Simulated scan of single mutants.
Amino acid sequence: MSHATGRVWSPVITPFSQDLAADTERFVAQCRWLLDADVGLAVFGTNSEANSLSVEEKIRLLDALIEAGIPAARLMPGTGACALPDTVAQTRHAVGKGVEGVLMLPPFYYKGVSDEGLFRYFSEVIERVGDDALRIYLYHIPPVSQVPLSLTLVERLLAAYPRNVVGVKDSSGDWANTRALIDNFAADGFQVYAGSEPFLLQTLRAGGAGCISATANVNPAPIARLARDWQAADADAQQAALIRTRKLFERFPMIPALKAVTARYSGVGQWARLRPPLVELDETQCQELFASLDEIGFDMPGLKHS
């Protein structure tokens, strides 16, 4: 099933003030800037430093977005946590706010867990939230979580909860796995998102839904354009340009790089700040990244005014 237009979501970076508290006002402004570029908001994702935020903080930030008039239908908050009650609390709250769906990590502390254990975890969350409006996008990110979600597990969850388990973000970096998810499940409307935009065009051509990507934080409009125009004559050239930009960021630790660049183009130095244990890029890294971006004429239009 090919999608007429693909969709792009950004795991929105979280701004921190000097005391390391989340800066709500700046967070809302950043989300508005992304929405203006036609990018959805996968707040509390990996690049949001979500696992450095408390459950209470994430609930408060989501409330702030809704209160500021950010449309709930453009939100896909990350709600997966190691502790089942934390996942249930965040998920129940998000569903109650009317979000498009939730992006759910597996419990990631224990390694080598069985498909049976993971099935029970997701099943418990779904049963305890107990809401037909719950739409889960599974989050497969084995390079970070070290807890993969197998095709067998996805198949079992879809059979048990076809109305609640509606998609997956595949951040394995393995095209064969993304392709298998699309080939096995997309025909029934299951939405398969690539974990980064280098895979966007092939995902859409294969019948996937789009991408949920770190660099949508900094290069949103061009990524969203390819998702919309993926059947255009210049789609391959658009894809090549996106890959070129992405590769510049991949030479550095991703979250510090996204924040350094956002600080530079917004003129707000505080954007560079991270919560420990993550640390900022050093001066040399910043100069190298900025020079390489200048070389390709990179810009973040409208960010200063947001």
Rank of each mutant, 00 (worst) to 15 (best):
V268E: 09
I141K: 02
G80F: 00
T152Y: 07
A227D: 02
R275S: 07
L53N: 07
P142V: 12
L35W: 06
F199T: 01
D236G: 10
V113A: 05
A209M: 09
G117M: 12
Y137W: 11
T91N: 07
G69W: 00
A37M: 08
I223G: 04
S2L: 15
L84R: 09
S17Q: 12
L65C: 03
Y109I: 03
V144R: 12
A214N: 10
G269E: 15
M1P: 10
W175C: 11
T87M: 07
A194Y: 03
G112M: 14
L134T: 05
P77N: 10
P106T: 04
D299W: 00
L278A: 05
V168D: 01
A180T: 06
I243E: 06
E280V: 03
I243W: 08
F108V: 02
C211G: 00
F44L: 12
D234P: 00
H93I: 06
T14V: 05
A235F: 03
G269Q: 13
T262K: 08
M76L: 15
D115Y: 09
R264M: 02
D236F: 11
E127Q: 14
D19N: 15
R179G: 01
T284Y: 04
A206R: 13
A22K: 03
A50N: 13
A159N: 11
A176N: 12
N164A: 15
E49Y: 02
D188G: 13
A224K: 08
Q287R: 15
R273H: 04
L61A: 04
A194L: 09
R205V: 07
V218Y: 11
L61F: 06
R120A: 14
P277M: 13
L138G: 02
L157T: 10
T46P: 08
